[in-house]
Each structure stands twice: as structure tokens, then as C-alpha cells.
């Protein structure tokens, strides 16, 4: 599932560190349309945001606890599923995170241009 699988554990560890915050951002953006755990897991991985189920499920709970997501049990289908949706606070946080992401991107580009 990893976008850039690397056999070196040091490299893998740093990549994981770099991507950790992006999962939160991706989930907040994706859940503007309500969705449940497994569907979100698949759609994130399809979009190249590599994330593990053992990371994503506890993360959704934490974001809900922080008021960034709201949840509702959907019992229409044969199996009850918990649907999450990004709250207004979550939307605000996503906007802040995206702005910071662009700022970091610009900063890093400056840095790499200055130090070839």
C-alpha cells in the first residue's frame, strides 16, 4: 500500500514521520462527504495517501473526541456502520493545515534552490 516502499527502516521511519500529519488533513478533507472507516481507508490509499487501518480507526475516534469530526450510526443497511463527517471546526482546521502545507512547500523550495 505504501507509495514509496523502501527496504531501509531508517528511511521508512522518516517517511512515516513526514506523512503522519497528512493523514489527519486528508481525512478532514475527504470526510466533507460523510463516510465510514473502511471506505475512507480504501479511498485514501487509492489517492496515494498510504495509511494503515490500525492508524486510521483510532485517529477517527480521536478527531471525533476533539470535535473535528461528528459521527452518526447508519442502520439503513444490513450492517450498522459509523459514518463520520467533518465538523465546522474540522473544516477550519483543514484550511489552516492546507495553508501551512503550502507555506512549508514554498519554504522548502526556497531552501533547496539556495543550497543546490
Amino acid at each position: 500500500m505504501d507509495v514509496d516502499p523502501s527496504p531501509d527502516p531508517v528511511v521508512a521511519g522518516h517517511l512515516q514521520e513526514l506523512r503522519r500529519g497528512t493523514v489527519v488533513l486528508a481525512a478532514l478533507v475527504a470526510l466533507r462527504t460523510p463516510g465510514y472507516g473502511y471506505a475512507l481507508l480504501e479511498s485514501l490509499n487509492e489517492h496515494g495517501i498510504g495509511v494503515d487501518a490500525n492508524t486510521l480507526y483510532p485517529l477517527l475516534r480521536r478527531l471525533e473526541k476533539q470535535g473535528l469530526l461528528t459521527s452518526e450510526w447508519n442502520t439503513d443497511e444490513s450492517r450498522p456502520r459509523k459514518f463520520y463527517r467533518t465538523s465546522d471546526e474540522g473544516d477550519d482546521l483543514a484550511a489552516t493545515l492546507i495553508a501551512d502545507w503550502h507555506r512549508l512547500d514554498a519554504s522548502l523550495r526556497h531552501l533547496t534552490e539556495e543550497t543546490p
Partner: peptide, 14 residues
């Protein structure tokens, strides 16, 4: 318990 059952069932389906 409900959340775990949902996750297990979805994983099994997949």
C-alpha cells in the same frame, strides 16, 4: 463493540 464489529466485518468482506 459496535465499531469493532463493523471494522472486522468490513475487513472480512474485503
Amino acid at each position: 463493540a459496535l465499531e469493532l464489529r463493523e471494522r472486522i466485518a468490513d475487513t472480512i468482506d474485503d
